[in-house]
């Protein structure tokens, strides 16, 4: 691997970031044909620095659910959720009987969500304060029949995390560490686990009084570690010559389940994007995206894995143009 061998590219990238005033961008990484062709850090970041995952965590949970299936902890994504989270047996709402694992992974559970695309939903605060996430979520009004309408929301990923835990009998972090992080050599702190046992890293300051940001920080990954997940996906489940997850799983996760009206971009326009299982699908590939510009983008035809990390603040962007710029100039 040759690093920083292309000073012209780096110079133009630096001036692009400067010109666009992208002061929050911390790391930019690009692998092409398995080689690291670009690695740039800003704001005193190094290759050891770890940055917030935000909703990239959702995409990792999808892989964990897939591993559950592979290891036989769950039989099929078509199984009812109530097999693993009993409270969804339909006693609270008749729609729960129809709620399947695949509905959680595709954000089509139909559970009412009051809020935008991100997790700043005030209901999440209520949920976490209730001390019983499963109980709280099972109480929520069912807006749509499961499987019919995609609404990007936290409930589905919270339930998926709980499901991995209940199915495997392991804490979701332990499970992920054992079956995904260790084989990939990824270093991560322990994920935040709520008093009721729910492993959920994204709450941020939703845990008022619990110093959520610090809790969340433990789930941070370095840019290189994030890239490993992308490389695993690009190589259809194989990392460093070793199979970590089955090929069909990569296939399944990145098959369009439905379309979603996505984030508002910096230009203020909304775009229509397809959604797989906690992974965003695009024209040429797929990506794991998180609030504030975190992303692992995989372009299989070009054999590219690109990672961007940025400080997640309210003025953060999705850096679509930056991604485009890097890909075009590499």
């Amino acid at each position: 691997m040759s690093i920083n061998n292309n000073s012209a590219l780096i110079n133009s990238l630096n001036s692009y970031i400067l010109q666009k005033h992208y002061r929050l961008v911390n790391s930019v990484l690009l692998y092409k044909d398995g080689r690291l062709v670009l690695e740039q850090y800003y704001n005193k970041f190094t290759k050891e620095s770890r940055n917030n995952l935000k909703s990239v965590w959702k995409s990792i949970i999808a892989i964990c659910a897939g591993i559950c299936l592979d290891k036989g902890f769950i039989k099929s994504f078509d199984e009812p959720v109530s097999n693993y989270i009993n409270i969804f047996d339909g006693s609270r709402h008749p729609y729960h009987k129809m709620l399947k694992i695949k509905h959680l992974l595709t954000m089509t559970s139909g559970i009412y969500w009051n809020g935008g695309v991100h997790y700043h939903c005030p209901m999440v605060t209520q949920c976490l304060r209730s001390g019983n996430a499963a109980g709280y979520i099972s109480d929520i009004y069912m807006k749509d029949l499961p499987g019919n309408v995609l609404v990007y929301k936290e409930w589905d990923v919270m339930l998926a995390s709980l499901l991995v835990q209940n199915a495997s009998g392991m804490n979701t972090y332990d499970f992920c560490n054992e079956y995904l992080y260790k084989p990939l050599g990824i270093q991560s702190g322990r994920w935040f686990t709520a008093p009721d046992g729910l492993c959920y890293t994204i709450p941020g300051n939703n845990y008022s009084g619990m110093d959520g940001d610090t809790e969340e920080a433990k789930s941070d990954l370095s840019a290189r570690d994030m890239a490993k997940i992308g490389l695993l996906m690009l190589n259809k489940g194989v990392y460093n010559g070793k199979r970590v997850i089955p090929e069909e799983l990569v296939e399944q996760i990145t098959t369009p389940a439905s379309k979603i009206l996505g984030h508002e971009t910096a230009q203020g326009t909304k775009w229509l994007q397809e959604y797989g299982m906690f992974w965003w699908l695009g024209k040429d590939g797929y990506s794991a995206n998180g609030f504030g510009g975190q992303r692992i983008t995989v372009l299989p035809d070009k054999k590219i894995v690109c990672v961007i990390q940025a400080k997640p603040t309210a003025s953060g962007k999705s850096y679509d143009d930056l991604l485009q710029y890097i890909i075009e100039n590499c």
Binding site: P122, T125, Q126
Partner: peptide, 11 residues
């Protein structure tokens, strides 16, 4: 009427 205060069951 606030999402922080409303009952989740009946919104």
């Amino acid at each position: 009427n606030s999402a922080k205060g409303m009952c989740a069951r009946c919104i």
